[in-house]
Amino acid sequence: MTATATRNRPGLRPAPRAADILPRLIAPLVLAAIMLAFSVLTPTFLTGDNLLAVLNQTAILALVAAGMTVVVRSGGIDLSVGVALDLAALAAAAAIAERYVPWVAVVVGLAFGLAVGLVNAFLIVVLRIPPFLATLSVWFIGTSVQQLLTGGGAPIYLVRSQVPEGFALWGNGYLLGVPFPVVAAVLVAGVVYLALDGTRWGRELTVTGEQPGASRISGKRVGALGASAYVLAAGVAALAGVVLASRTYAFIPASGQLYVMDAIGAVFIGATLSKYGRVSVPGTMVGVLIFALLANGMNLAGLSFFWQGLARGLALLLVLLLGVVLARQRTSRVRPPATATTAVPARKG
């Protein structure tokens, strides 16, 4: 016990040994291996244009995953970020179709997404429904709401020439030669990173996620912290929705849910980078890049889209399993018993 206690306390440990670091390097090593493999396999992979295109395609997943990181750090999970994304895209596209000015469309889109976050926060913080199931039911209801609002799930297509430039820029503009979605993703990821790891709010959120009971006793406003995580995640997803609607000049129902599973996978791949199995924005971005480069490389190598789920699933399993197996050789942590709804999240792979 003493050995474990000392080991878990930062600052008391001598310089890390290679065996301690190795499990945490798996995700970056996998990323490097993917880049190496595809740059050998396809000549066009490692070109500036292609990599910029990859980043551009990844921006939406990166945004969603950055928001998911906050929720997971707070000890929860959010399956409904796709709904927030979809409703934001729907509201923004509908507003543009009705000839509203761009900023109104963007604000309406963000408001719709934030509403989803507020519903989640109410269900989870006020009614104390477990996050997985609360956000699962919001997913059900949100999917229905989309279908009801679009007359049974009909897509909304915007006429490209009639979309005002102020709205088209969100998905198709460039800032100093960098696509706007990439700029947005980098900015949001940076802000979320600083907020999580550099502010009092971030520290309190982390503590609340890892020891809800202790942080409640020590007088933290646990409810408000949790609520802020869900609202923030939904807000970031809503931004992603606006970018998606602008980029595709359309709203296609249920397109947001595609990002949820990848975002969760990326967040937990990122957790393997941390000594404490703690999720973080830089780690999440490594996970996002693994998924993105894998998809792009497979496209360039001419593999059918059908194989991509397989590759992603295998990459996810591989990274997590290696992380768990290597970490297990290092320490054997006591797994807290899984109690009912209020279980302290055991940080595992």
Binding site: M261, I264, F268, L310, R312, L314, L316, G349
Partner: peptide, 17 residues
């Protein structure tokens, strides 16, 4: 020692693919 949520998320992707 993997979380069931993540393990089955990965196999869900693999089986779907």
């Amino acid at each position: 020692g993997l979380r069931p949520l993540l393990t089955t998320l990965a196999t869900m992707g693999i089986a779907g693919s």
